[in-house]
Simulated assay, not measured.
Amino acid sequence: MDIISYRDYCLSFPGTTEHTPFDEVTLVFKVMGKMFALTNMDTFESINLKCDPEKAIELREKYTAVLPGYHMNKKHWNTVLIDGSISDQQLKEWIKESYDLVIKGLPKKIRETL
């Protein structure tokens, strides 16, 4: 996966917006104002994704390219290295799961607008 396909995929979800709230190189994707994915646009060496806490641990144990979320709440976030060891299809699945997890946490009235 490259930065363009990553960006296009993230923006394909309803209600998604992109921002650079931390600095000029950290690209953050939000749904209804809540983060679900972020990366460094200059290097695109990893992406941070929200994850169910139990699944986050399982993924870290199974994949060497999945680490506790860098600069994030390590219970709820994973950092996934873009080193070629994780397929694009798997990355897309995890991005979608991150998006869905954020949607699930939104109030019902807001969820229904999506």
Rank of each mutant, 00 (worst) to 15 (best):
I3P: 13
I4H: 15
S5Y: 04
S5T: 13
S5L: 12
Y6E: 05
R7M: 09
D8H: 11
Y9D: 10
C10Q: 04
P14M: 01
H19C: 13
T20G: 11
P21E: 06
P21A: 13
D23S: 15
E24D: 15
V25M: 15
V25T: 15
T26A: 13
L27G: 05
K30L: 02
K30Q: 07
V31H: 05
M32G: 10
M32R: 13
G33H: 06
G33K: 08
M35F: 01
M35W: 00
F36M: 02
F36H: 02
L38G: 06
L38A: 02
T39W: 00
T39V: 05
N40F: 09
M41Q: 15
D42V: 13
D42P: 12
T43A: 14
T43Y: 12
F44Q: 11
F44L: 14
S46E: 10
N48D: 11
N48Q: 05
N48E: 07
L49C: 00
K50Q: 01
K50N: 01
C51I: 00
D52S: 03
P53Q: 01
K55P: 02
R60G: 03
E61Q: 08
E61G: 09
E61R: 09
Y63L: 07
T64S: 14
V66Y: 03
L67S: 05
P68F: 01
P68R: 05
G69H: 04
G69E: 02
Y70P: 03
Y70L: 08
H71I: 10
M72Y: 00
N73H: 00
H76E: 04
N78H: 02
T79P: 01
I82Y: 00
I82V: 08
D83L: 08
D83H: 06
G84A: 06
G84E: 01
S85K: 10
S85E: 04
I86N: 07
Q89I: 10
Q89W: 03
Q89V: 12
K92I: 05
E93M: 12
I95T: 04
I95K: 05
K96N: 10
S98Y: 00
L101R: 12
L101W: 04
V102G: 07
V102Y: 02
V102F: 01
V102E: 01
I103K: 13
K104C: 04
K104M: 08
G105T: 12
L106V: 10
L106F: 13
P107G: 06
K108E: 04
K108Y: 05
K108M: 07
K109D: 11
R111W: 09
E112Y: 11
T113H: 11
T113S: 14
T113D: 10
T113K: 14
L114H: 05
